[in-house]
């Protein structure tokens, strides 16, 4: 890069995202572990509450969403960790490029690596939990709209704790309360769909949350990163 200033925002976005994706492809465990974790958590529930089909049908949306939440939490920790320890995060903050775009690119990469696989595997998990067939579209839509929100909000927590040695437990305390609205609206939408009721209202609210998170979270993340690298 001879003239970094000449990068357009779009180029910058793609470059940062491409780099993160490439790093992730190198250590495949980063993509696979949260997914395996998700499947294991889902498997534990029938073992814990019993294999009755009716009960599982009723609680399936909640289980899938709670498991998705926890696996997002698990995968979030390394969002900025490597960049922080090898100093490239500081480089990012010092560069003349807008931090907003770079942060957004990193979060997008994180979602592609962890959110998207969850969406792809979700129908299988729903099948295992005997979810109501009517609710499948709702499950997919809520996951498609909701998992980006998880990545966006989670990034704030990670950015705040990246400089700390014992950030893990703290991270869950910081962001799980903020995840609650997504959880509530997503499961409500799926339950409404299972009863063959309209659920577009819930979807609209999750979309609103996504828009809000998309516009505000990169600012909060940027501010938090400046604190953490101080």
């Amino acid at each position: 890069m001879s003239a970094p200033q000449s990068l357009s925002y779009r180029q910058l976005f793609w470059q940062v995202m491409h780099r993160d994706l490439k790093v992730a492809v190198h250590n495949k465990g980063d993509i696979l572990n949260p997914l395996i974790f998700l499947v294991i958590v889902i498997t534990l529930f029938p073992l814990g509450v019993g294999p009755e089909t009716n009960l599982l049908t009723r609680i399936a949306p909640g289980i899938i969403w709670v498991a998705a939440l926890l696996s997002a939490l698990l995968s979030l920790e390394r969002l900025f960790k490597n960049d922080y320890s090898d100093g490239s995060l500081e480089q990012m903050l010092l560069s003349p490029q807008p931090l907003f775009i770079m942060v957004l690119a990193k979060i997008s990469a994180h979602w592609l690596l962890t959110g998207l696989p969850i969406i792809l595997i979700a129908p299988l998990l729903a099948l295992m939990l005997h979810m109501e067939p009517l609710a499948y579209p709702a499950l997919m839509i809520t996951l498609a709209l909701g998992t980006p929100v998880l990545s966006l909000i989670g990034a704030i927590g990670v950015a705040l704790t990246v400089g700390l040695k014992k950030g893990g437990v703290l991270l869950s305390l910081l962001i799980l309360p903020l995840y609650i609205p997504v959880l509530i609206f997503a499961t409500a939408a799926i339950e409404a769909a299972a009863l063959n009721m309209p659920y577009s209202g819930h979807i609209a609210i999750i979309s609103a949350l996504l828009v809000l998170a998309l516009t505000l979270s990169p600012f909060a993340v940027s501010a938090a990163l400046r604190v953490s690298t101080n």
Partner: peptide, 24 residues
């Protein structure tokens, strides 16, 4: 500064949490 960012994020979220919980 760190806690301040979290506080402000929480302010945005308090009404959202309130309404989501009421709906739920």
């Amino acid at each position: 500064r760190a806690a301040g960012i979290l506080t402000l994020v929480g302010v945005v979220n308090i009404p959202i949490i309130k309404y989501s919980v009421e709906w739920w």
